[in-house]
């Protein structure tokens, strides 16, 4: 059984946000205009989170790309009254948008704030409709959405591998953000496989996870900056 996880090397990361835009394009995320943005209602399944420490001139700013952590003990699933979000067998924290009733308990419960509520009906100008990704469903107003590790890509990759009569290879299934990363700072793969890149990197000296003390056991690892 796979256990999907991600490693982000902050030393290689350039904070360019290609991952952010690749995700917007891949997952049909709603366009949020200036007024709505000003209310903080944008949706970004992966987003750069700034940590500003110190005062001028001794300032250190860290920009941390933050997708859903796909925790092994996810706080969000425990509060969902309708089983719209749950941890599946392969370690992916699923969010079934059509099941969601929009109570937003999970958005509150998530310590990483990766869950986004659709405040508006997602709409695109007619000129753009055909450019949406037909592999990912469009959400409706009033439901919560979040990063799925591009699970639709896994469905397609697994189907392809099986049709070709072979095992799923690591390069078959890569989320859009990892695929687009220009500096090669993002890795994705099976944490259960002790020889996979992610599993080796997750055991590296520089590896850490966000808010580890909460006991959520995230499956997104970071490699710290510096030596």
């Amino acid at each position: 059984m796979h256990r999907w996880g991600m490693v982000i090397d902050l030393d290689k990361c350039t904070a360019c946000q290609t991952c952010v835009v690749a995700c917007l394009a891949e997952n049909n995320i709603a366009l949020i205009g200036p007024e709505e943005s000003a209310k903080g209602r944008t949706i970004h399944w992966i987003e750069l989170v700034p940590y500003i420490q110190g005062e001028y001139p001794h300032v250190k700013v860290r920009l941390i790309p933050r997708p859903c952590m796909h925790c092994d003990h996810p706080p969000c699933t425990k509060v969902c009254p309708v089983y719209a979000t749950y941890l599946n067998e392969e370690g992916i924290v699923a969010q079934i948008n059509y099941r969601c009733i929009g109570c937003r308990y999970c958005t509150t419960a998530c310590p990483y704030t990766v869950k986004y509520f659709n405040w508006y009906e997602p709409r695109w100008p007619d000129e753009m409709r055909g450019a949406l990704n037909r592999d990912v469903s469009i959400r409706t107003k009033g439901v919560v959405e979040k990063c799925t590790f591009c699970h639709h890509r896994l469905l397609k990759a697994r189907e392809k591998a099986k049709a070709e009569g072979r095992d799923l290879l690591p390069e078959d299934y890569v989320p859009a953000c990892v695929e687009a990363c220009p500096s090669g700072a993002m890795y994705f793969g099976d944490l259960n496989d002790p020889f996979s890149t992610v599993s080796q990197l997750s055991r590296e000296r520089r590896a850490f996870r966000l808010m580890e003390d909460l006991g959520t056991e995230p499956k997104v690892y970071y490699l710290s900056e510096g030596m």
Binding site: Y86, N88, E89, I92, A94, I96, N97, Y98, R99, D135, V136, S137, T148, H151, H152, L155
Partner: peptide, 8 residues
């Protein structure tokens, strides 16, 4: 019958 098998 995992939801994620059909729902994306």
């Amino acid at each position: 019958n995992d939801c994620l098998v059909c729902h994306i």
